[in-house]
Design a protein around this nucleic acid. Structure first.
Lengths: 218, 218
DNA sequence: TAATCAATCTAGTGGTTATTAGATTGTTAT
DNA sequence: ATAACAATCTAATAACCACTAGATTGATTA
């Protein structure tokens, strides 16, 4: 009869491990981060994660098996989206813990970080305050669809691909804070590098919308 | 040169997946939950998770490899403890998401839940208010060492093993809210079952200290 | 109806992981 | 010293997982 308690416990932890397993594969993590930006087709996900559609499909199957994503057919395509905001939250918590604990990761992140700009605040409240007053421009450099799905308050959208052609839309007298999908996305870094080279005052915001929402909910 | 960005990204997600892998094994999850209760020796961990010391050692090695735990030798024994409060936080977030998404898990948890008591509140604030005023007794039924490591505010300690002999210490005119390690621990359920059979008014608190702290930090 | 496209399913392969047993290290007590 | 003990290390096996290629499904377009 004591054995029975053991059996119940094994079942419980096994179920939780089903969720953990989803977060144990690099490619699946990348897919989750992409899905944090909004719903996407398998094709888009595969392309943006640099994998074959077959492999993407297999990974998404795992995500669906754990009920972390939902699907919807639209015409020829099948759209995937996160089944729960808490999935994005968990992704943020995991990568934050990884950044805090793994020196290797900290060093890799160093490489893709731009030098900070002393005129641009890196705490959320003052940045928001300045954005509200128009003292800084918050720039979303992700693809337009992702901006449409969700974006930070007061953010303007110029996808990184169009940035070079649309520099004239940006002011030179105020700093420009660029953000993208999150700390592992290189688009914001590229944007800041370009803007600075073109004589703009610019800084990078490491957070994406998922990270921002987690931080805002405390 | 475009390939280079891909290489960097692969490295980043791989590092995060190192953390995810730790949370992908049921036994490792159980060890993490045990470590949420305070520092413990390998022997204790192995015994409480119902595995051999060799296997426990192997799993703890993984935890250490991901820098999620620290060790310290004390005499013959080696003590393990969580390297960061955020590890406990991540455990709470993962099992909470699992409970929200997996019907199988919800059903298993149903089985180990006691009937609620309408005189005992299940929201944190009023429970604390009543505990402060002495209107309920908050009872920690975990082993004494775990109570000593940390416990909920206003909680009294009577380990589940000693409960039957120490029933006289508890009042019959006020409800007794028992808690243990968390929602996958059966000690609080056993305590409530015993207390009710002995004529006490009693209810179970599903949260352990880790869950309580995450909930308190919002 | 045929052709095309997006996505999945099936099967197979190489690599990784959980678990166990046996030998080994470091510490304490006799 | 020697014995006893806690814990780890090494090696081996079986189960599992990521990924690839080929065949298949379901929807759209010609």
């Amino acid at each position: 009869m004591m054995k029975n308690a053991r059996k119940i416990k094994d079942l419980l932890y096994e179920q939780v491990a089903r969720i953990g397993k989803v977060f144990s594969s690099p490619k699946r993590l990348e897919l989750i981060e992409l899905l944090c930006q909004g719903e996407k087709t398998v094709e888009t996900l595969a392309h943006e994660a640099s994998i074959s559609m077959k492999l993407a499909s297999a990974h998404l199957r795992e995500l669906r098996g754990a009920h972390l994503v939902e699907t919807e057919r639209r015409g020829k395509n099948i759209l995937y989206r996160l089944a729960d905001k808490a999935v994005a939250g968990l992704w943020v918590h995991i990568h934050t813990l990884a950044e805090n604990r793994l020196i290797e990761l900290q060093m890799e992140i160093q490489k893709i970080a731009t030098q900070p700009d002393e005129l641009v605040p890196n705490d959320r409240e003052t940045l928001m305050k300045m954005a509200r007053r128009g003292e800084v421009v918050v720039l979303d450099v992700r693809p337009a669809e992702e901006y449409l799905a969700t974006h930070l308050p007061f953010a303007r959208s110029i996808p990184i691909d169009e940035l070079r052609q649309r520099l004239a839309e940006l002011p030179k007298d105020r700093p420009i804070v660029a953000y993208c999908r999150g700390p592992y996305c290189l688009m914001a870094k590229d944007a800041v590098d370009l803007l600075r080279k073109e004589g703009f005052r610019s800084a990078q915001l490491r957070d994406g919308v998922a990270e921002w929402e987690v931080a805002a909910s405390r």
